[in-house]
Design a protein around this nucleic acid. Structure first.
Lengths: 222, 222
DNA sequence: TAGATTGTTAATCGATTAACAATC
DNA sequence: TAGATTGTTAATCGATTAACAATC
């Protein structure tokens, strides 16, 4: 629309706080909602209000990566969506490997939310002979032994671990050796990996514990 | 073992940073692993090393809630586990309602990790007549219309939302009206609730986005 | 005793917010 | 023009770390 605008092409010179990046994802999500409802532009105040941040924080967060707004006008939604996707690296589609096809693994295999944000599970792994060799939701299920080979073949760089806790570290080590550089781990254990391999841990029970704490200590804040 | 020790019974006088509470959950998880491996005591250094924190931080975090350690010795695992459970409110078992039985909802219904940490799903809700009235994993499935009634009857205070995004806000409002005080939301939308209702949002795609960002910006840190 | 480790204070570091000139 | 809103600097706030006396 306006290619001529001097747009510093993503220069995170200094180090970007981790919290900023997760808010970036929230901005993106909200912007996508706004577009769905027909909004063409938005403002730091609007984004902040919906998400519970100050307007200053929204502007500061974005400022880490460049200048995306128009003084007096705000941000053009589509434009900012494109910019954030580029920053997050989701302006492409990432092939993802999924290891472990228990309840959670199967649910993740079918989860539509990944595809919408630029991730597609292209290979699943398990050790259960009853499912190895089949396809689930059109995704081929391989034996864990084929991990390295398949990851190499399909050029997969991201993986999801959904195996029982005792197996998680072993699988993580295998994945790292196979060339995976980012791991999303659903097993409730802290896995150790070389620092070159990034990993995010999601422990569903811990999320409930945070709630439990908030509820138990609720009265004191009132 | 030593009931006589003067143990300030959980006095979070000032306000406890949110980050401290989530680390508390990690300490608990790690302590449980240590006990499984036969450890009787541990230290702030050991806990910190495994989890990637400094020893000072471990001690500071725990200090928000009382004195749990023994100078020269460290922390008795079982004792600290009991203390943290009490702080988090998981020294009891919480009945939980689950709304939405799509792929993710069903997986959560079967997820074993909840029970181990003091949460049990006791009622599930959906609007699909094909499953309403049945039991899945011995959990009764009710129609969404029965939400208020069942939550009241079973005295449920925590709920999990696993419905499609467009339904999430409506369900959240319903839950709040039914007396739910804590909500774990898996729908990728920010829901608005009265501040008396605590909620935690888990967006699976966002977790992958964090990974994608880390991977794309990986080289710069090396 | 010597060695280990806590709880806590003070110092450092980092992140959020307020304010405002510049811009449309 | 007047009103709206940005990007950015400085001020504030909060969280992490280092250091150490006290304790076992």
């Amino acid at each position: 629309m306006d290619e001529d605008r001097p747009k510093p092409p993503m220069s995170p010179e200094g180090t970007v706080p981790k919290a900023v990046v997760s808010r970036l994802s929230l901005y993106l999500r909200e912007l996508q909602h706004l577009v769905q409802y027909g909004h063409e532009t938005t403002s730091s105040t609007q984004l902040g209000t919906v998400l519970g941040f100050t307007d200053a924080q929204v502007r500061k967060d974005l400022a880490y990566f460049g200048q995306f707004g128009y003084p007096g006008i705000g941000y053009r939604c589509e434009e900012l969506i494109a910019a954030i996707k580029q920053i997050l690296g989701t302006d492409r589609s990432w092939p993802v490997a999924l290891v472990g096809l228990g309840n959670l693994g199967r649910a993740l295999l079918r989860y539509r939310g990944f595809g919408q944000q630029g991730f597609r599970v292209v290979a699943a792994f398990d050790v259960d002979d009853a499912i190895v060799g089949q396809h689930i939701e059109q995704i081929p299920v391989y034996h864990l032994d084929q991990l390295t080979e398949v990851i190499d073949e399909l050029e997969i760089r991201l993986a999801i671990i959904a195996v029982p806790s005792p197996e998680a570290q072993g699988v993580a080590t295998l994945l790292a050796a196979a060339g995976i550089v980012g791991i999303l781990n659903f097993a409730p254990v802290t896995i150790a990996l070389p620092s070159s391999v990034k990993h995010v841990e999601v422990d569903l029970a811990i999320e409930l514990e945070q709630l439990s704490f908030a509820v138990v200590n609720r009265s004191e804040k009132t």
